[in-house]
Amino acid sequence: MKKNASFILMDSSLAKYLYNTLQDLHPKSRYANELLQGLADLMEGEVATLMLGMTGQGEHFVNVVDDGIYAGALEIHPKSRKVLHSGIEVSLTPKEFDILYFLAKNKGEVFTKEQIYQAVWAEDYLMADSNIMAFIRKLRKKIEPNPDAPEYILTIWGIGYKFTERE
């Protein structure tokens, strides 16, 4: 049976986090500013309670889990195999996606070219450093604002690559 209402307590740190996150992400919703103002009112003590309601019935949220990995303006969605940069879809080959997803899900961890190769290629394939380097170069051209000064896929000289730790 579906509940009509749910009361959830929120402390000041959560309210501030939600407020800051909404300000930073600028969600594409006409209700975002109203929620921001409501959170501001809550933090300033002008109101003691916020009531949130869903437009329509909210059926499109049933069984939906956001599986995305987010870093700055980059979004990686493994279930749909979509990558967005600043809300615009980036077209990647299957291997480019696999490399990006592998690095992103292991954010901050440094991998050698061999480790990336072993994680992404299931079949035996002639592994050459230049193969991984070529994929990384093509990937950077597609996702990096400035491929010559990458923000997402970072080179760790003498070792390999890592995905940025920034949120």
Rank of each mutant, 00 (worst) to 15 (best):
E151D: 10
A122Q: 12
G108N: 10
L22Y: 02
D24H: 13
D98E: 13
Q23V: 00
A122V: 12
A122I: 15
T55H: 12
I116P: 02
K105W: 04
N146S: 10
F163T: 01
K141V: 03
V110I: 13
I8R: 05
E151W: 02
V90P: 03
F7L: 13
Y17I: 02
K95V: 15
N63C: 05
A104M: 05
Y101Q: 01
Y125R: 14
N146R: 12
L9M: 07
R140A: 07
N146P: 03
K138Y: 12
K138Q: 13
A119Y: 02
G87R: 06
H60M: 11
E59F: 12
Y125M: 09
I99S: 03
M51D: 10
D67K: 14
A128Q: 09
P150F: 00
A128H: 11
R81I: 04
A40E: 08
S130V: 15
A71S: 14
E96L: 04
E151I: 05
K3W: 05
L35G: 06
K28L: 09
G160R: 08
Y152V: 04
I156G: 07
Y101V: 05
Y17W: 08
G56N: 13
V47Q: 06
V64A: 01
Y17H: 08
R137Q: 13
K105H: 07
S29L: 12
L35K: 02
G53N: 15
I8F: 07
K82M: 06
L92W: 00
F61W: 08
A134D: 14
Q57C: 13
P147D: 08
D66W: 06
M54P: 02
K16Y: 00
D98S: 14
L39Y: 00
S6A: 14
A134N: 13
T49K: 08
V65N: 01
L84Q: 02
F163H: 06
I88P: 01
S6L: 14
